[in-house]
Amino acid sequence: MVKALIFDMDGTMIDSMPWHQKSWVAFCERQGLDIDVPDLMRRTTGRTGIECMVELFGDISREQAQAHVDEKEAIYRELFAPVFSEIAGFKAFLGHAQSRGLSVGVGTAGDRHNQAFAYQRLSLGQTLHTVGGDEGLPGKPEPAIFLEVARRLDVAPEHCIVFEDAPLGIEAARRAGMRAVAICSSHTSDELGGPHVLARVPDYHALITSRFLETVHATTA
C-alpha cells in the first residue's frame, strides 16, 4: 500500500542540475581551483552542502565550509532564476497524487534558501513537508533525510515511494527501506537501477500517461 510520496528537489522537482554544475564551475574559478566539476558532481550530488565543501577543500572548519556553501548557492540561484523550470509535468503529477489523498514530502540536500527559491518559483500555493540538507542530518546515500520525512508524515518507510534523479538518492531510498522512481533528468536509466526501483522515466508526463499512481494501487487509506 502506498501512502506517501517523497520527492528529492534538485533534478527531480526542478530542472536545476545544469545550473548547479555551472555554479560549481564559477565557484571553483573564484576560488582558483582547477578540478573536474562533472566528477565532483558525480561524487557529491545528494550530499549536503557542508559535506560537498569538505570533499572539495578537505579539513576546513564548519564555519568556513558554510561560507563556501552560501557563496556557491548564491551563484546557483543567480544563474538559474532567469530560466527557472520544473521537471516536465511535476506540478500536474503532484496534483494527481494529492487528489488521491496521498501524503507528500520533500527530502533534499538543498538548504532552506534553495528550498524557498524553488517553492516561490513553482508557485505551489502550499508548503510541503520538507527535510533539508542544513538540518544536521547526513546526506545521501545515508537514508536519514528520507526517514525523517517519513517520520514527519507519520508514514512507515515501506509505504513510501521516493522520486530521485541521482544514484546516491536512489541508494538512500533503498537503505531507507523505500521503493523508488528514477527521474532520468541528469543521469541515464542504467545509472538509476535497483530492485526497489519501480520505474525509470524522463519526466512526470510519462508517469501520468502510464497511469503510474493507479498501477501502484495508491489509496486514500
Rank of each mutant, 00 (worst) to 15 (best):
F117S: 03
T219M: 00
F212S: 09
C184V: 10
L128M: 13
P138A: 15
Q115W: 03
D165C: 09
S210V: 01
G58L: 09
P202V: 08
P141R: 15
R200V: 00
Q120V: 02
E73I: 02
S16W: 09
T48Q: 04
A166N: 12
R112K: 11
H113K: 13
P18S: 07
T209L: 07
G139F: 15
M9K: 14
T188Y: 09
E142H: 13
A4Q: 05
G110M: 01
L56P: 02
E164M: 13
T209N: 12
Y204A: 08
S185F: 02
R174F: 04
A206G: 11
S123D: 12
R211G: 04
L40D: 00
E51L: 06
A67L: 04
I208N: 05
R151Y: 02
T48F: 08
S185L: 08
F117H: 03
Y204V: 10
N114A: 03
G136Q: 12
F146P: 15
G177Q: 11
S103H: 06
G125S: 03
R77F: 05
H196E: 12
P141S: 14
V106P: 04
A180D: 12
V54K: 04
C28R: 01
I208A: 03
G32N: 14
M13L: 12
L40N: 00
A4Y: 05
L207T: 02
I161R: 10
H68M: 13
L56G: 05
M1E: 05
F163Y: 13
E86P: 07
L213W: 00
E142K: 14
A65Q: 02
G139M: 12
L137D: 14
P157L: 09
Q64R: 11
